[in-house]
Amino acid sequence: MSDSPKISLTDLHKGFGTKKVLQGVNLDVAAGESVAIIGGSGTGKSVTLKCILGLLTPDSGSIKIDGVEMVGADRKTNEAMQAKSGMLFQGAALFDSLSVWENVAFGLIEGQGMPRKEAHDIAIKRLSDVGLGPEIAPLSPASLSGGMQKRVGLARAIATRPEILFFDEPTTGIDPIMGDVINDLIVKCTRELGACALTITHDMASARKIADRIAFLYKGTIIWDGPVADVETSDNPYLQQFISGNTEGPLDLDLKHL
């Protein structure tokens, strides 16, 4: 079991009506490895992540976490998977009705049944881990800047010391400097936890910094997969066009809908 991948996707398909979004995604992520799935808008990155998290049910294919099949799994299996994973959402997805510390401690209080006082202390430590002071703990998430919200979201994702971390477009919507801060924090937290990380992004700078390996998703399938160092030297024309940002090339860009 120990040498089996932490996350394993096999021939994953998902469609909405007549639109086929995922058309046979295959990907393995090893324990302690950080993989970034890159690709343009509408290629199925978010759908892949939502299928892994159990927020969407795939039409066919297999998703294994620690060798356990998650497609069609019962509630307890799903809860066990969620208990060992943490997720940073694109817009942070902080709960408006709770304070900053209650957001960070949510998984500890509601998921693990930890007393509020103990959870509060851990939340303050996690906020400190992402460079935020205790003075913001009682504030409402709405009173924070976008970058601070992302950091609180990261603190919430790591609060339960998960084995698997998911990041959905971690640098979208924030300035490049704050984006770099977030990238550094993601690398630091992932290493400290020894967690395996799966990031979806279209920000190449972020992917290069966060990931050990990059998978390029195009039209619902992964058409290139390799170490970060090989991205620049790859002879895959689709990947080269994507990282160079050219509108001319083999990628079928429907610019009217972008």
């Binding site: 939502k50 998290l53 927020l55 969620q82 994973s85 997720m87 902080l94 509601e110």
Partner: peptide, 8 residues
């Protein structure tokens, strides 16, 4: 979605 990922 965040609630689901937090086992709630």
């Amino acid at each position: 979605d965040a609630l689901v990922t937090l086992s709630t």
